[in-house]
Simulated assay, not measured.
Amino acid sequence: MSNPKEIKRRISSIESVIKTTEAMKMISIAKLRKTKDLLIQVKIYFNYIESILLDLLSTEKYKENSESNKYFLGKGKIKLFVVFTSDRGLCGSFNSSIFEKINHILKKKKYSYNECVFLSIGKKGFDFLYKKYNMYSNKNWIVNNLSNQKIEFLVSKLIFDFFQKKFYAIYLIYNHLKQSLFQEIVMEKFLPISNWKKKTSDYILEPSRKEILNFLIPKFLNAKLLKVFLESTTAEHTSRMRSMHKATENAYDIKHDLILNYNKERQTTITKEILEIISGLESLKK
Score class of each variant (00 low, 15 high):
L275W: 05
V228N: 13
F84W: 03
I18T: 00
N144I: 03
P192K: 02
H245G: 14
Y130S: 15
L281W: 05
K157C: 10
V155D: 03
I193N: 05
F220E: 03
A23E: 13
K101A: 15
V143I: 13
I151T: 08
S194Q: 09
S16F: 03
T268E: 07
H256D: 10
K210W: 01
S66Q: 09
S51H: 05
L230C: 01
S66K: 14
G280F: 09
I274C: 07
S279V: 03
I204Y: 09
S137L: 00
K189M: 06
Y252T: 04
Q41S: 13
F162V: 04
K34Y: 08
S279N: 11
I185E: 00
M26E: 15
E50A: 10
D55P: 05
I159C: 11
I102Q: 06
L260Y: 07
K246L: 13
K131S: 08
C91R: 10
K198H: 06
L258A: 06
E231A: 09
V82K: 06
K166C: 04
F46Y: 14
T200M: 03
V42K: 14
V83S: 10
K166D: 04
K109Y: 02
S12W: 07
D257G: 09
T269S: 13
S112A: 11
L38E: 14
L80T: 06
F81T: 03
V117T: 13
K272R: 13
K272F: 04
L90M: 12
Y168P: 08
T271F: 08
Y111T: 04
L80R: 09
L146V: 07
I278F: 06
S194N: 07
K101G: 03
L158W: 08
N3Y: 05
S86G: 14
M1G: 15
S208V: 02
I173G: 05
S66N: 08
A23S: 15
W196I: 12
